[in-house]
């Protein structure tokens, strides 16, 4: 979605230049929340302040929201149909594999020191084994980052 935002804002509408966009995008990655929404927030704010941010977020979220409403209500109607259940039973392992693949790819590209890789394993392992609130992974990551700094 982000390349589409860039093309619309930088190339088509010329509301931002590339370096502004890249700066916004890199900070949008750091902040919590959906990347596309954070990027939309930044773009809107840069162009028209808070009203701009509101409009951009609404625009970025509304299509998915509408499509997902349709999907959820249709699925609610048909989830007891045998074929639909079969479909979901097949889709579930595929989704599991896709998320596992995402972990590998993110770890591969995003983590550049051995310390980070070990830490990601430790954090995930601790949360899973002790069924902790996943928030503890964030707390642990931040604590480790700060401790390492000293």
């Amino acid at each position: 979605m982000v390349p589409l935002v860039r093309r619309a804002m930088v190339e088509d509408e010329r509301l931002l230049n590339d370096s502004d966009f890249m700066q916004g995008f890199s900070v949008a990655q750091i902040l919590p929340g959906v990347l596309a929404i954070n990027t939309a927030c930044f773009v809107g704010r840069k162009i028209r302040g808070l009203p701009g941010a509101l409009v951009c977020v609404a625009g970025a979220a509304l299509p998915s929201f509408c499509i997902m409403l349709a999907v959820a209500s249709l699925f609610g109607e048909f989830r007891h149909v045998r074929l639909v259940q079969g479909f979901m039973r097949g889709a579930a392992p595929a989704v599991a594999a896709l998320i596992a693949a995402a972990v590998l790819e993110m770890g591969w590209r995003g983590l550049d020191t051995h310390g980070e890789i070990v830490m990601a394993f430790l954090l995930a392992g601790t949360v899973i084994v002790f069924s902790l609130h996943p928030l503890w992974a964030v707390v642990g990551g931040v604590a480790w980052g700060l401790l390492r700094h000293r």
């Binding site: 995003g110 890789i117 830490m119 995930a124 990551g141 980052g145």
Partner: peptide, 13 residues
């Protein structure tokens, strides 16, 4: 760096 490790851990969970 810590937050990046946490993000990968969350997806692992």
């Amino acid at each position: 760096r810590g937050l990046r490790a946490a993000a990968v851990a969350l997806i692992g969970v």
